[in-house]
Design a protein around this nucleic acid. Structure first.
Length: 365
DNA sequence: CAAGCGTGGAG
DNA sequence: TCTCCAAGCTT
């Protein structure tokens, strides 16, 4: 049967009631479900993008202690926000959220806009997050189609479109507009996602205890394991890197800030470059070009770190900073000499936390 | 539209 | 060790 034929004889209000009853009974007690503060819903939705609930919970709780309100976050330093995000990944989320919250503080007096136009133009708020905030916080019947919702609905209506394609999301949004509960869009959307997280899971879904199993075409046909259809993404590419932990005469450590755009933007790291020679010349030249004279050791460690699209294999060196040869050049760099105990104050990506752990915390350097 | 953008956990 | 993710957005 086609999706249209299924929908025509499908029991919409029965599905709504079964889903809402199950959600009311089985929903998890999560920190962002204690009230409907739009700011908290917003922050939680940004953190939950491509990130599991169990990972988010401690970050969310710390974030709310540091920045309890729109005003508090708007007034915070960006580096403080990035430090609170350290380890959570996709750091543009933190920078975009910070910018958007400043705009809300400036343009809306700190009140999160409760309409589609206002909310969608905020940095980092795309179609899913806009719908999630509108429905969950303001109970407005807007679709909030994430991976869970596409998986659940692809099974219920046996939809074989590739959910990795952007255009497919629109199809699911139009379906949600048809079936969303007009009285309780907040719990309806959350119920769909909760069902995807707890019952209608990617692998071996629990169809036997599914509260909406009688509405599901995939279960009827026994094809739930074939859905959803999702194109495979290309595997990450290997990149050989070098990093060096440098100490000066006073025991200070040299760190550098990454560029404002691109991967790990504005985070800090130990001087880091793509490997271009087997010996030490590439490192020495890289540092000399920034005005630094150094004495390097042989490789002391190796770090492997997998990103979503790249794998870094980092050869780690240590060395001594002999002097700043060209202080004018050094002044233009994003390098800083900091006390060993202060390295932890800066936001580091996990790849370089691994270096920090090995060289500065476990090692005797 | 496809690619770029992180991380830690499950199987 | 390897594969596949998990409440996506921006360019």
């Amino acid at each position: 049967m086609t999706t249209e034929e299924i929908l025509k004889e499908w029991n919409i209000s029965g599905f709504q009631q079964d889903l809402l009853d199950w959600y009311e009974d089985q929903k998890r007690d999560l920190p962002w479900r204690k009230d409907r503060d739009p700011y908290k819903i917003w922050v939680s939705e940004i953190m939950l993008q491509q990130t599991k609930v169990d990972t988010v919970i401690p970050y969310f709780n710390r974030f709310m202690e540091l920045f309890p309100t729109v005003e508090a976050l708007a007034e915070a330093e960006e580096e403080t926000v990035l430090k609170a995000w350290e380890g959570l990944g996709y750091y543009s989320r933190a920078r975009n959220l910070h910018q958007a919250v400043k705009e809300v503080q400036e343009n809306y007096g700190g009140q999160v806009p409760a309409n589609p136009e206002g909310i969608h133009q905020l940095r980092g708020v795309g179609p899913y997050t806009a719908g999630a905030i509108l429905s969950i916080a303001f109970n407005i019947p807007a679709p909030a189609v994430d991976g869970n919702v596409m998986r659940v609905l692809s099974r219920i209506f046996t939809i074989y479109d590739d959910i990795a394609k952007g255009s497919t999301r629109k199809l699911f949004e139009s379906i949600v507009e048809d079936i969303i509960s007009p009285n309780n869009p907040s719990d309806f959307n959350q119920g769909l996602m909760e069902l995807g997280a707890l019952i209608c899971t990617p692998k071996s879904p629990s169809c036997l205890i599914c509260p909406v199993g009688k509405h599901c075409a995939a279960r009827e046909e026994g094809v739930q394991a074939l859905l959803p259809v999702k194109a495979k993404k290309t595997p990450p590419k290997l990149k050989d890197m070098k990093a060096v932990v440098l100490k000066d005469n006073d025991g200070n450590i040299l760190i550098e800030q990454r560029p404002e755009k691109g991967m790990l933007a504005k985070l800090w790291q130990f001087p880091n470059l793509e490997k271009s020679s087997e010996d030490l010349t590439d490192l020495e030249e890289h540092l000399r070009s920034q005005g630094l004279e150094v004495q390097l050791s042989e490789k002391v460690h190796e770090v492997r770190h997998v990103f979503s699209h790249i794998i870094w294999e980092i050869d780690v060196y240590v060395g001594e900073l002999k002097g700043i040869v060209d202080s004018e050049l050094f002044g233009k760099t994003k390098l800083e000499l900091v006390k060993k105990s202060d390295v932890d104050r800066y936001p580091f990506p996990v790849s370089h936390q691994k270096i920090n752990d090995f060289v500065l915390k476990k090692g005797d350097f």
